[in-house]
Design a protein around this nucleic acid. Structure first.
Lengths: 129, 129
DNA sequence: GCTGAAATACGAACTCGTTCGTACCTACTA
DNA sequence: TAGTAGGTACGAACGAGTTCGTATTTCAGC
């Protein structure tokens, strides 16, 4: 198990999201799927730095190197939320959730799903406590 | 109404949190309440930059200037959440909430409060739709 | 009024993230 | 086998954020 990689920067996160969505990719494939219009060598450089940081792995067997995410999406998301929680909410997940839900466009469906999640957490609690 | 201030940086957010919690303060008071051990002039510099950005206002009538937040806590928190939502969750508030709630230490009480919030949102929806 | 403590203003250094130009390498192909 | 398309590696520039040293100002009390 690799020593835990640092949190990705903005540009790195954007690249990770491409890799999470499309699976292992070459530099050019990543570049094509990015929203931004970054130069090829810029994307390449990012991936090289990310390799150093342990955020991605790469397969060098082929003509073009193929990069794959070395960190999980769920894990990274949780760490980012924890980070924001510390920085802006004094650790209060309740407040953060309230703010997230006050972002008007949360559909009825999403609310239902969140309700289900709450119920499930409650069930789990019954086992423990 | 001032043109909306930019999102605060990390250091600026830490200072804003002091101002939100303790109300209008002098540089020294802010410094005293900060977790970090920042030099006096560092805090001063931050507040000066924040003044330029419109993040704080200041009262220069007394010996020491008194700084007050120019942005609301709830507002800033919402914008920070929106920002993270875009960068890491493709805009899905549901996913963000799920990650926030998977941070083990969310108490039973907090869960109840969130449930109440959901119910309230539902009620509001009934009015609209 | 003078002085010193306490505050403010300014500027510079340093780090980190981002971007890209340029050089180099490699393997098809004509 | 020489040329070239398409890849990789490297280094440098730039901006933003952070930090603090130093100079300057201000005012309360002697």
């Amino acid at each position: 198990m690799p020593l835990d990689a640092p949190l990705p920067t903005d540009a790195e996160l954007a690249i990770l999201r491409v890799l999470w969505a499309h699976g292992p990719s070459t530099v050019r494939e990543v570049q094509d799927h990015l929203d931004t219009d970054q130069g090829y060598t810029t994307v390449l450089k990012h991936l090289q730095l990310m390799l150093d940081k342990g955020l991605v792995t790469r397969d060098e067997s082929g003509r073009a190197h193929v990069y794959a995410p070395a960190v999980q999406e769920a894990d990274t998301q949780r760490r980012l939320v924890d980070d924001l929680l510390d920085r802006a909410f004094g650790g209060s997940a309740r407040q953060l959730v309230m703010r997230a839900l006050s972002t008007e466009d949360v559909s009825r469906d999403e609310l239902d799903q969140i309700r289900d999640l709450l119920a499930q957490i409650d069930d789990d609690d019954h086992d423990d406590a």
